[in-house]
Design a protein around this nucleic acid. Structure first.
Lengths: 334, 334
DNA sequence: CTGTTAGCGCTTTCAT
DNA sequence: ATGAAAGCGCTAACAG
């Protein structure tokens, strides 16, 4: 492996000149710059990241703590992670992966100066990792919205707004009684905030519009879905439920069948709006009217926010990504 | 941040003694060892990874190139990744994540000495990344089995064996005509080797047992599944298909419904054996008879193999993980 | 616009 | 069983 010294000798300049050519922190004459660059190419030089980290106090690595359990949301998680890695590369950063259950990992990678900043996914309302993170005094961004961010920046999709948007769409289509099929009970119990917020937004929007609402949590299985539909559709009381908002990607492959099993056709008998990643909404034979979860945008925003905090000292920031609804064939007026 | 020097001073010993206490590469008297350890605790010292990497030529980081597209196999991929990260930690290594489409990343992290070894997932038969990897002269392990490993170690599940095991199980139950519903056409076309090998093993085992076989690729949608079932079940010719081997996790939530739609009950009318991760096979209302894909074991083995190659110079190795079948309620004798 | 030089925090010989 | 000291390859202040 060639070192910077080798390059300097080859180019007939000093070591620091090579360093400055690489960093651009000094104005260099066209001539020497070219000489250095050609020496770099000739020797196939690349800088030693450890040495650089030691001298500059920057590792060019971001730590990402991701939930790697086989949850319902795997595809969303993968999209987040992909977006984070891709965006990090545009900032010339790499990504070190930490698992959710290795809480000590946050502390470890920080105290060993392995990372310049930290991202944490799948935040719960009172996530015990937040105080840990806050203590570390490293730029950090939470992907999710806890009760108390304790001075950390956050970014997330506006799940409450997503539900509101879905409800308004259905109300505009003259639906007067709307059902909500949400995340599994387990998500609610561990207070994954996306689940709570989506439900809250739904209820509020229905109340505001004066339409009746029925909510139900649901596992990703046909059995659970059938039960949930029974509960929601038969329970409607005075006005029959004519539209559903579904916030659970795992159910989408099952939903057509389950409704057909009750003799209900989409959208003639029942309108459906899903809250799901775009590609999941489009994967179905009949694409869903959807408020799409822009996993990629969120991941990108998260990286941008850490990098901002790394390069300047911007104040903390809580950013909610605005939902948009795309009407497709699964919702119609009644 | 305290440095090793601070610790040495605090403990009243020399810098090198502290280093040797940490590495264990020298015998240290009980007394000084305790003094050093207490100084470490008192100052809350942890070594600077960059400095260590610079001096020792070891980063304690493994690079993992993973397919982060939202594919059909997301859950399997997540399990691999989780296993890799977890196992790496037991070797005191961290994991740097590279995305599939960043082929240059392999070269970059290697030449910058960011990683001690590399793992690459989702290997295709003639994967163009293999020659790149082979050139890097870093310990590397392929998770998958290409046509020509070019001197790299490989580890994978024995997908051919998995199909054979499934077929033998069904033959033992007196089935004489077996269908195979496999990965999407796209997987075959890009020559994901797991898809090829599972098919091959299936055909071979059926031929060897003298039972008739019908194969079909299938996307993860109800529509595609319905078509595939029609093709496989109606196409049987002389002997009707009485059992299915399904190698496609995305289809499992749909399968009961799809078969019920044809008036077929499991296992009275048709037996089903799936090749899928254990938890996926168990997630169904009625757990599947399954040859389980031990994603965790494969990930663990991969890390063990790089670490072996890092610490000694073991010869290259191709390791296939042996399949085992667990009978549950979806297969029965006829 | 360029060169000289003092570290950054560690590992590892060489001494004793 | 311990210490002294020479790097590892880079960044950035200092000096022109």
């Amino acid at each position: 492996m060639a070192t910077m010294n080798d390059v300097a000798r080859e180019a007939g300049v000093s070591l620091s000149t090579v360093s400055y050519v690489l960093s651009g922190k000094r104005t260099i004459s066209e001539e020497t710059r070219l000489a250095v660059q050609s020496a770099i190419r000739k020797l196939d030089y690349s800088p030693h990241s450890g040495a650089r980290a030691l001298a500059s106090n920057r590792s060019n690595v971001l730590g990402l703590m991701a939930p790697l359990r086989a949850d319902v949301n795997v595809s969303v998680i993968m999209q987040f992670v992909a977006a984070v890695v891709t965006t990090a590369r545009t900032y010339n950063q790499d990504v070190l992966l930490l698992t959710q259950d290795d809480a000590g990992g946050l502390e470890r990678v920080t105290s060993q100066s392995m990372v310049d900043g930290l991202l944490m996914m799948d935040i719960e309302a009172r996530d015990p990792r937040i105080p840990l993170l806050a203590k570390l005094r490293k730029p950090a961004v939470l992907i999710g919205l806890p009760d108390d961010p304790q001075g950390l920046s956050c970014v997330d999709f506006d799940f409450a707004g997503a539900s509101r948007t879905a409800v308004r769409h259905l109300v505009d289509l003259n639906h007067r009684s709307i059902g909500f099929i949400g995340s599994p009970q387990a998500s609610l119990e561990r207070h994954a905030t996306y689940a709570d917020r989506a439900r809250k937004g739904f209820t509020e929007a229905c109340d505001a519009a004066g339409v009746s609402s029925t909510l139900r949590a649901c596992e990703a299985s046909m059995l659970a879905l059938t039960e949930a539909l029974t509960a929601v559709l038969d329970d409607g009381g005075a006005t029959a439920v004519t539209a559903l908002v579904v916030h659970n990607e795992g159910l989408l492959p099952l939903l057509h069948e389950a409704l057909a099993g009750r003799g209900l056709h989409i959208p003639e008998d029942i309108s459906v709006v899903v809250i799901a990643p775009e590609d999941v909404a489009l994967a179905a034979a009949r694409p869903w009217t959807a408020v799409s979860i822009p996993a990629h945008d969120i991941g990108r925003a998260a990286v941008e926010m850490v990098m901002d905090r790394l390069n300047s000292d911007k104040p903390v920031e809580v950013r909610l990504i605005v939902p948009t609804l795309v009407q497709r064939e699964t919702s119609s007026a009644r």
